[in-house]
Design a protein around this nucleic acid. Structure first.
Lengths: 191, 191
DNA sequence: AGTAAACTGACCAGGCGAGTCAAATTAGGA
DNA sequence: TCCTAATTTGACTCGCCTGGTCAGTTTACT
């Protein structure tokens, strides 16, 4: 997509790119709710410049969300759909999503719809919700999942996890992974 | 325990009791973090009176925490210990704790140690942690639980649930109960 | 050199909740 | 009933945090 905006002055161009870069870093490390003052400081500009160049937090998020979260999430979705066996597909997806949630605080902000006025952020949520539904439907038809397990249950599980990671202490990685397995075992058909 | 404090004037006595009553109600409905301004208003007094009579939020919590949460939690612990079969004991406890968490926002604030400077609140946490350990130890010895399931896993589960209930939407009761069962099935030995 | 683009530091506003205190009110004892 | 200590209160401050603004200053381009 060609840049339809009027050409920026050199300093504006430079600042815009610096803010983008710093924001990606900050969002990936600490989530989408990191104070703009801190992003500005790290970029060596005034907070007002973020408002000037991006219109504020929503604009900034929209400018970087693909690189921060969306690309990775869509890759998970694609790879999930490529898994042949339904049972394994579900296990793959849930493991991969939980991994993303563990590593990317911004992913949790997306899943929690922290900024509902950000169109791209909401589109990512929609896409994630879609694959949830798809997986659960396939899992039930194939008999891989317990019949009483719903798409709402998966949604709640991911959402609860996002809340726990956002508001609580960060669990040790191996503990976290072990708990993924407990969950998967609890929803698998055959009990 | 006889009241060791000097006898209060009639209005002070009346206000103290009214604040206590209202606080129990407020904490049970909305958790321990309900604004003191609202407790005061509901009690028909000024917020400063809560500070005068109870020293502030911590004092107020300490004054009512038994009635708000502790009595019920200790009853769960007692009843849990009375269940003979280990597997059923664990299932009973987890179900009962989750029930308490669902019904009592204040229980979640306790489990999250929202006010670490409140001695009684912290004592309740300690007691809850103790039975967690006890149950998991017994469950592993008896073979009722998967050997890799730890007391830390149970603690995290309860803690995460508290965070989800505190910060997220309130799930429908039957959804919530179903998810309890998925969890129990996921940690049960035999897979 | 002129001037519009762009930046900025200081400030405002809003939300929320804890906490304070001089003035006002109440209650109890003489 | 009066006096006065006990008690309450309304108004205010403070702290935290973040979004957002704007007149004056600086920068870059022609």
């Amino acid at each position: 997509m060609p840049d339809a905006r009027p050409r920026l002055r050199a300093d504006a161009q430079r600042n815009t790119e610096q803010i983008r870069r710093v924001a990606i870093d900050a969002f990936q490390g600490r989530g989408l709710t990191v104070p703009l003052e801190e992003v500005a400081k790290a970029a060596g500009v005034s907070k007002a410049t973020i408002f000037n160049r991006f219109g504020g937090r929503i604009g900034l998020i929209e400018a970087v969300i693909d690189e921060v979260v969306a690309n990775e999430l869509y890759a998970i979705v694609d790879r999930t759909r490529a898994v042949e066996d339904i049972s394994e597909r579900i296990a793959y997806y849930i493991t991969a999503i939980r991994d993303l949630q563990y590593r990317q605080p911004a992913a949790n902000d997306v899943m929690l719809q922290a900024y509902p006025h950000a169109p791209q952020l909401m589109e990512i949520c929609r896409a994630a919700g879609e694959i949830n539904d798809e997986l659960i439907a396939a899992g039930r038809v194939s008999g891989a999942l317990r019949p009483e397990f719903t798409a709402g249950d998966l949604h709640a599980y991911i959402h609860d996890n996002a809340l726990a990671l956002k508001h609580g202490p960060r669990p040790a990685r191996d503990d976290y992974d072990r708990r993924t397995r407990f969950f998967l075992d609890g929803i698998r058909a055959g009990r």
